[in-house]
């Protein structure tokens, strides 16, 4: 599935790799951000009135 998505990226291989790296980094950032937001529901640090 990932290979198919990679091959769908237009352009020469170098451009494809560059686009794939950017997309992967963006996805990773979104995932970590969502972990932080969900994590606040588990434990927000315990401060009062913040």
């Amino acid at each position: 599935m990932l290979k198919r998505a990679f091959l769908r990226i237009p352009g020469p291989p170098a451009v494809r790799v560059a686009v794939a790296v950017v997309v992967a980094f963006a996805l990773f950032s979104v995932v970590i951000w969502s972990y932080e937001v969900l994590g606040d529901l588990l434990d927000s640090g315990g401060a009062v009135g913040q």
């Binding site: 606040d40 529901l41 588990l42 434990d43 927000s44 640090g45 315990g46 401060a47 009062v48």
Partner: peptide, 15 residues
């Protein structure tokens, strides 16, 4: 000292 309460939830504070 303040922290979240109960465990695995930030619904309340334990003091």
């Amino acid at each position: 000292l303040t922290t979240c309460h109960p465990r695995f939830s930030s619904r309340q504070r334990l003091i």
